[in-house]
Amino acid sequence: MVAAEAAGLVAIGAGLAVGLTGIGAAIGEQSIGSAAIGVMAEDPGFFGKGLLMTVIPESIVIFGLVVSLILLFVY
């Protein structure tokens, strides 16, 4: 019973790690994305750079994912 509860809590923790970092990255990408689209409207040549800048906050989700993978498979 205790073991099952602990496993459940680990799963919840793993979920929170991905979910909350996802929200964080989304908030970051929101402002970068709108700025990038603004630049692209002026000069479509910035598509590549804009897209790249936009995905930079995604690292945070990767960190969250690493944490959740460690929780689920390693811990």
Binding site: E58, S59, I62, F63, L65, V66, L69
Partner: peptide, 12 residues
């Protein structure tokens, strides 16, 4: 440290 963790995306 975060640079190296960043490569976890290869799996993710």
């Amino acid at each position: 440290l975060s640079n190296i963790f960043s490569y976890a995306r290869l799996l993710a």
